[in-house]
Design a protein around this nucleic acid. Structure first.
Length: 435
RNA sequence: GGAGGGAUGACAGAGCGGCCGAAUGUACCGGUCUUGAAAACCGGCGUGGGCUUGCCCACCGUGGGUUCAAAUCCCACUCCCUCCGCCA
């Protein structure tokens, strides 16, 4: 949620920044009006409250002095004020609720370096990498044997059974088998191990309460994109960012502990409402996928370095897997609602001949921390909201697809990169199932 | 799922419905003493919000209720602990 105090102090700056991502100035004016009204009512209610407290204290004194007549007259006055106070408080609460409701729907203020744009077509490519680039080799030419879509490779080798997944849970719930399932397990272990130098490994719950979802900004905005279990007030997490952001909810962290860096692999659940039929073949877009997430709570001063570190780690994994990828700076129109700045990593998958988003590295400023109420204590004793930063490293379903396409050999086998060997028991070559 | 016990500041732990935002201890910060440290002593030490910056308001697991007045009484819920049942 954005900073209301800042909105009061510099309404024009905030309005201008939010206008870049489509929030009308009329919407912001409504918020400002609600805020003014809220404070007016709050003052009214509080001064009534103060009066009642004072009268009540005097009743106590009168009782102690055995002055029954005085006590009763004071009681009568206080009782009369009580009705007024209740009405004032209810009015205050009503306005506070609608103020909060409005604030929850307002996206984060974009950073200055976020490019202008309407949708993903306006994202700006800032870098591109492929094996041998540093040695001066040109962008790779992919051979015909690499131009086979992963769903065909998967079927050929018996490592991906989309029909079985669909039978169990409907379409877009993939089922991996044999070496395909093991490859997925290997990727997770490979990535988690790579981050353990600086990041604590977490295994959080796969479900979270409405309150938790709200603190990351996923609710109320994205409720149609998530799986809900209403009987238990639970939602299936769309990313480990949700539990990690709430891990320290309501806490005041000592500055010396920052940055707190966490990594977690979880299943991620996405309803992908409205996406039916669009780029949904194979593993391009699925309802459930595994992802290793990197996350940091930090001070504002540490945020840039924390963001850069996560980005470097995600890139590092792609490079050691030998996959071609590019970096995109998301434009205002494509930026996630909670984010102030996001860099996407897209891997090139030759079989389907497209760039697939496999990581999104975002800086949230204090937007999530304000909702989740995560603060830190500075050396001078004051408190401030932390900044949160996160990124995927990486989302495995699409990496799986890019790997089997990129490394498909002319004989139809797939020769996986050596870095995965320890996690595959040395079996880096995937061959067609004989049975 | 059943029975019982509990939830108060960083921690421990008091708190007859009325100077209780909360005793006391520990921890922590500052000072005195000391060559220095420890001990002792003195002082400080929760978080938010509002405005007339000096005051006011809120918060004792959460949400309701009773009352002139609630940490304190009532109801519901959540979580933790113990026991029973069930269970990977």
């Amino acid at each position: 949620m954005i900073d209301l105090v800042q909105l009061r102090r510099e309404p024009d700056e905030i309005k201008a920044a939010l206008a870049r991502r489509g929030v009308s100035s009329a919407t912001m004016d409504e918020v400002i009006v609600l805020d003014v009204e809220h404070r007016r009512l709050l003052q009214e209610a509080e001064s009534l409250r103060a009066e009642i407290k004072d009268l009540s204290r005097q009743v106590g004194e009168a009782r102690r002095d055995q002055d029954t007549a005085r006590a009763e007259s004071l009681t009568a006055r206080s009782r009369a004020l009580g009705d007024e106070e209740r009405a004032a408080r209810e009015a205050t609460d009503r306005v506070a609720a609608s103020l909060r409701e409005s604030l929850l729907m307002i996206p984060n203020v974009p950073a200055d370096d976020v490019p202008e744009g309407l949708d993903e077509n306006d994202n700006v490519e800032i870098d591109r990498w492929w094996v041998g680039k540093e040695e001066g080799q040109p962008f790779p030419e992919y051979a015909p044997h690499q131009r086979v879509a992963h769903w065909d490779v998967g079927k050929e080798l018996g490592i991906l059974d989309l029909e079985a997944g669909a039978r169990l849970a409907g379409s877009m719930f993939p089922l991996y088998r044999g070496a395909g399932a093991r490859l997925l397990r290997a990727l997770g272990a490979f990535a988690l191990d790579a981050h353990l130098d600086d990041y604590e490994e977490i295994r959080p719950p796969s479900f979270a309460l409405t309150e938790t979802m709200t603190s990351t900004g996923h609710l109320p905005k994205s409720q149609d994109d998530m799986y809900a279990i209403p009987r238990d007030d639970l939602w299936a997490i769309p990313t480990a960012e949700v539990p990690l952001t709430s891990m320290h909810r309501g806490e005041i962290l000592d500055e010396s502990r920052l940055p707190i860096r966490l990594t977690a692999q979880t299943a991620c659940f996405r309803r992908e409402a409205g996406a039916a039929g669009r780029d949904t073949r194979g593993l391009l877009r699925v309802h459930e996928f595994d992802k290793v997430e990197l996350f940091a709570y930090c001070t504002p001063e540490q945020a840039d370095a924390a963001h850069a570190d996560i980005l470097a780690r995600a890139e590092g994994l792609l490079r050691s897997l030998g996959l071609t990828y590019r970096l995109l700076r998301l434009c205002t129109g494509d930026l996630g609602s909670s984010s102030a700045r996001t860099i996407d990593l897209e891997v090139f998958s030759p079989g389907v001949d497209r760039w697939l988003e496999v990581s999104s590295v975002s800086w949230f400023r204090d937007y999530q921390a304000r909702r989740a109420n995560v603060r830190y204590r500075r050396a001078d004793g004051t408190t401030a909201l932390v900044h949160t930063v996160n990124g995927s490293a990486l989302a495995w379903a699409r990496i799986w697809a890019a790997l089997v396409e990129t490394y498909r050999q002319s004989d139809g086998t797939v020769q996986l990169p050596d870095v995965l060997s320890p996690y595959l028991g040395g079996r880096t070559r995937l061959t067609p199932k004989v049975s």
